[in-house]
Amino acid sequence: MMSSMTRQTLGTLLAKQGILIAFVLFMIVFAIANQRFIAMDNILGVVRSSAIIGVMALGVTFVVIGGNLDLSVGSMMSFSTIVVLDLHDKIGPAMAIPAMFALTLLLGAFIGFLVGYLKLNSLIVTLGMLSAIHGLTLTWSGGKNMDIADKSGTWFSFFGQDRVLGIPVPILIFALLAVLLSLLLSKTAFGRQVYAVGGNGQAATFSGIPRARVVFMTYLVSSFCVAVAGLLQASRSLGSQNTVGQGQELVVLAAVILGGASLLGGSGTVFKTVIGVLILGFIQNGLLLMGLDFYVQYMVTWAIIILAVWLDVAAKRGHLWSPIA
């Protein structure tokens, strides 16, 4: 019979690393089902295709830990992609990239001002901004899709198509950004303030933490990550529909929550968000290799996400079912 100390150790391990254990189990199951799943080119392909969602999820992690939501990232990514593609041919990529970042950060600052300083509900604000930014994107593009005129003569494709030491550049950018933002969240005073504001905003204010400024900065971090995602998207295809980010905000939020961040704020890590992103990516890839129809994939993906989150929550509270009936 398992000793109480062993059970306690296993319980602690599951509570802290439940989502990581679930990820490993998913990988094992899919690898057994199809050997192609663990081929290096398949793994790199999945991570590369997940990089854009992953980059946005890194920024939304800050917002969610801070106790808020950001449903505008999908339409904001469409805006960033369209803007940088349009400006590429007009002023050149060297000027188009910083201009796009500046405009995207301006949108993030506006949302941060509404939520942080005016203290408006983040769900309502970002849901409204989802539509507003989509309208802004259509206005900018004139309702048309964007393409770079000379696709063979631009270095702009480096960010989305090239490799460094055999590793796709989007993966390297995703990994570098994850490391930097993880350090920002876990090793700096700002990161501790984000956790404090999300955990108990009123107590944080009484402790002297500038709550409004912290919330404002989380939306700046989120918009910066969206700009990076827009750059990767535009560079990968050198052209885009003006609705390229439509619906991505829900996938991003699912990855963040799947990674263990609480919608109530105050908990979560960048590392676990990366795991959440990879779980979504590898689940879809594994189901595809198993030959399931796309509509079946949606249902199975949903079921696996619910199961993974349930097991993670159950491990943290020590019960499969809530003790409160």
Rank of each mutant, 00 (worst) to 15 (best):
G166P: 04
P170Q: 11
K144G: 10
M76P: 10
Q241K: 13
L85V: 01
L58Q: 01
G191L: 04
L14T: 10
A109V: 05
S322P: 01
A51R: 02
S222C: 11
I283E: 00
G11M: 13
I305D: 07
T6N: 15
L231W: 06
V29R: 05
V194T: 02
A189R: 09
V64H: 06
V277Q: 01
S186E: 04
M56V: 00
M217P: 12
N200I: 09
T137N: 06
D89N: 11
L264P: 06
L10H: 11
F282V: 07
F216A: 09
L232A: 01
I32G: 07
K119N: 12
A229F: 01
S49M: 12
H319A: 15
S223C: 06
S240M: 02
G199Q: 03
T243G: 11
D70Y: 02
I19V: 14
A254S: 10
L172V: 05
F158T: 15
A315G: 12
I28M: 11
G286M: 03
F158S: 09
L184C: 13
L180C: 10
V60A: 08
N285R: 14
W310G: 10
I167F: 02
M290S: 07
G128V: 10
E249G: 04
T273V: 08
L263M: 11
G18F: 02
I19H: 01
L307Q: 06
V164F: 15
T104G: 13
L289Q: 14
L85F: 02
M100C: 07
S141T: 00
A315R: 07
W155K: 15
T188M: 09
R211F: 15
D70N: 14
L44K: 14
Q161S: 12
S50E: 03
L176N: 05
V251R: 01
G259F: 05
G153A: 15
G112I: 06
S4Q: 13
S262G: 04
L289F: 06
Q161W: 08
L184Y: 04
V251S: 08
G160S: 00
A175C: 11
G245T: 03
D70S: 04
L264R: 08
A303R: 01
N145T: 08
A314P: 03
V55A: 10
L185F: 02
G268W: 00
V125T: 06
S186R: 15
G281F: 04
W155E: 13
V55L: 07
T301L: 13
G259E: 09
I124D: 14
L292S: 09
G18R: 03
V46C: 07
A254Q: 00
V197W: 08
G265N: 02
M77L: 15
T137F: 00
I91E: 02
T6V: 14
G266W: 07
L44W: 08
L138T: 13
F159K: 04
G199T: 05
A96Q: 03
V29H: 09
A39V: 08
A33P: 01
M95F: 12
F159W: 07
L280T: 01
Q248A: 14
M100G: 13
V73F: 09
N68L: 13
A254V: 06
L250P: 01
I283W: 05
L232V: 03
V228Y: 03
I32E: 08
S75P: 04
L220R: 05
P98T: 03
M1H: 05
R213N: 10
V214L: 10
R317G: 06
G153S: 08
H319I: 13
I304H: 06
V60N: 03
